[in-house]
Design a protein around this nucleic acid. Structure first.
Length: 180
DNA sequence: GAAAAGATTACCT
DNA sequence: GGTAATCTTTTCC
């Protein structure tokens, strides 16, 4: 009983969407078939947030962040692609880590490795959820609040103190540094 | 047009 | 734990 998340799921406050994404399955389809991970770590990028790529309005890089809820936002940092899902205009949730499902031996711990495992790249920027290329499904109840660790976001130099990182407490696939 | 910074990762000691 | 790799986007002059 796997329920695909619809665009309306994402049209809610970003931190709440982020929290509820923990434990869901993120799936893609590509030349090598289906790839999937179970999300164990995400970060919220919100309004009036200096760490948010969209904080200074639309640019070429972040234009997909102003698309409808459920839009995929992929950007490159150094040599790495990182994937997000848009919630409300100019806000998104970054997929930081997952537990491997398909293939079992993959290492999706870290936003770059997660995108790599799923085959997501710049070419996928702007794709709507459920378009046949990617989807998110819920196949188990949401993680209870007591099993979620909150902490500061990783690698950001501005608004670094805001607790907008969400992770499944104690999960071995959560990336470093592990939140307490 | 030039320069700096970066939502990272891999590999070093 | 620290740092280099590496390259695109953004920002500033």
């Amino acid at each position: 009983m796997a329920t695909p998340l619809r665009p309306s799921f994402f049209d809610r406050p970003t931190p709440r969407v982020a929290r509820e994404l923990l434990g869901t399955q993120l799936r893609t389809w590509g030349p090598d078939g289906r790839r999937s991970v179970r999300l164990v770590e995400v970060e919220a990028y919100v309004a009036r947030d200096p760490a948010n790529h969209a904080d200074r309005g639309p640019t070429r890089r972040n234009r997909s962040m102003f698309g409808p809820p459920g839009t995929l936002y992929v950007y490159r940092i150094h040599r790495v692609a990182c994937a997000n899902v848009v919630t409300r205009p100019g806000q998104a949730v970054l997929f930081r880590a997952g537990a491997p499902i398909e293939p079992e031996r993959a290492n999706p711990s870290g936003p770059g490795r997660l995108s790599r495992v799923l085959g997501l790249g710049i070419a996928d920027d702007g794709r709507p959820i459920g378009d046949g290329r990617w989807e998110i499904v819920r196949d188990r109840p949401p993680e209870p609040a007591g099993r979620i660790a909150l902490g500061p976001r990783v690698g950001v130099s501005r608004a670094a103190e805001r607790p907008l990182r969400f992770a499944v407490r104690g999960d071995p696939w959560v990336s470093r540094p592990r939140p307490t």
